[in-house]
Design a binder for these strands. Structure first.
Lengths: 225, 225
DNA sequence: CAGTCTGTGTTAAAATATTAACAAGTTTGT
DNA sequence: ACAAACTTGTTAATATTTTAACACAGACTG
């Protein structure tokens, strides 16, 4: 078991100050997941080649991605899994437990809440809200659905910055406005509609019908040139 | 209401024979959704500028995207909504009703199935399958969950090419192998794991924890340079 | 029916992202 | 202690994607 010198690069930001690309940021959680698995299996050192096998990204890309934030590996050896994990947690902001709110407790909202409680170790569901009185106080793995009126207080008290919305498209914009008004700065939107938010508020769209529909394109037999 | 000449470009393929980019293909269903809305509101003509407002993509990008497949608009006027919709349906392959199978009838599988039945007009759920006998014959909007053993027959009888899998990561690869063996050529994977498939089989990963985790990065206050 | 206006389609430029090549450290074996 | 085998991090080259610019076609106006 080779002893590793831990390179020092305390900064979380991109070295050059260039803004890090969206696609890169999306790969970071994948690295993190693989590292979690490796650490669970007591693997101490991992090379970019093996990471490539596990993630499907090329080894070159992985090295480049990681080098964006600093020199985390050891030449001739590879990356220390625990050390790299720590670094990636810091970079992504997942080193601190992140609390989020979910708005919309329909079937999809419930399933996604469950899913994140069970499978997402880095995110904690602080509250679920729904406008439908019939949903009130129904439970999802012990978390009670609350009325929309109670949302602002919770967000403020726990300084929550991230929200996931699974409401009908017709009301999605109103919900976004309300969330932003109360200090939310990042929203994962599952409603199939374009949402507007002031600069500084990040909206990611996860339109599930689009995923499936764009996949159809690739399912067609196409004669390759 | 200006009369439009419908330009002719019968081919669905990229004009130059260059392979069309992944990101472009993902935008097509968005255009399609907007067009559906416009047509429902009896809007006949739409400009790239207005499409830009509705989709969030730039007008230039929209024009370029559409021009990839042919000249569908009328200079000085815009695009005929119905005509453009027809063209896009053909390009994406959504002009024919597409049948898919779902494997995994857990909470997420059920919710996604429901969601697609209700919200995705272009895709028909032909069957849901689960390895857990307890799930057998439970219903989702009238569709009965079937045993895995019954899957090959259904896929063959209906020549299904697309599958959505929401099974635990541990068994995902085995499920993919089985699906591919039976002729599936495109898979939407919700399991948080890298899957292998022979060339020609397309796998799209829709890892929901990753969406949320990468969003966290953007929720952090970062001093801009 | 010339002239103006509008908005597409195309071509060129710029910005991003990926791939490749290789120099520079590390470890291992002899 | 030196050479061989590895594997990172960096720099350069390539490819892709996005943005911009503008020529061109149709439509409306007087």
């Amino acid at each position: 078991m080779p002893q590793q010198k831990k390179p020092q690069n305390p900064s979380v930001k991109d070295k050059k100050g260039t803004k890090t690309s969206k696609s890169l940021i999306k790969r970071l959680p994948v690295y993190l997941r693989i590292l979690d698995n490796l650490i669970r299996r007591d693997v101490d050192i991992i090379s970019s080649r093996v990471l490539s096998d596990e993630t499907g990204f090329t080894a070159e890309q992985i090295r480049k991605d990681l080098a964006t934030f600093g020199a985390f590996g050891t030449r001739g050896t590879g990356y220390n899994t625990s050390y790299l994990r720590e670094k990636l947690l810091k970079i992504t902001g997942l080193d601190k437990q992140i609390r989020i709110v979910v708005v919309g407790s329909g079937h999809l909202g419930k399933a996604l809440t469950r899913y994140n409680i069970l499978k997402n170790p880095y995110v904690e569901i602080a509250g679920i809200f729904d406008a439908n009185p019939a949903e009130l106080n129904t439970e999802i793995l012990g978390i009670k659905v609350q009325a929309m009126e109670d949302m602002p207080r919770l967000i403020e008290e726990q300084s929550i910055k991230v929200a996931m919305i699974t409401v009908p498209a017709e009301v999605a914009q109103a919900v976004v406005d309300l969330l932003v008004e109360n200090g939310i700065s990042a929203i994962l939107n599952f409603a199939p509609t374009k949402l507007r938010a002031p600069a500084g508020v990040h909206i990611h769209n996860a339109d599930l019908t689009i995923e499936l529909q764009s996949l159809i394109y690739y399912s067609l037999e196409r004669e390759k040139e």
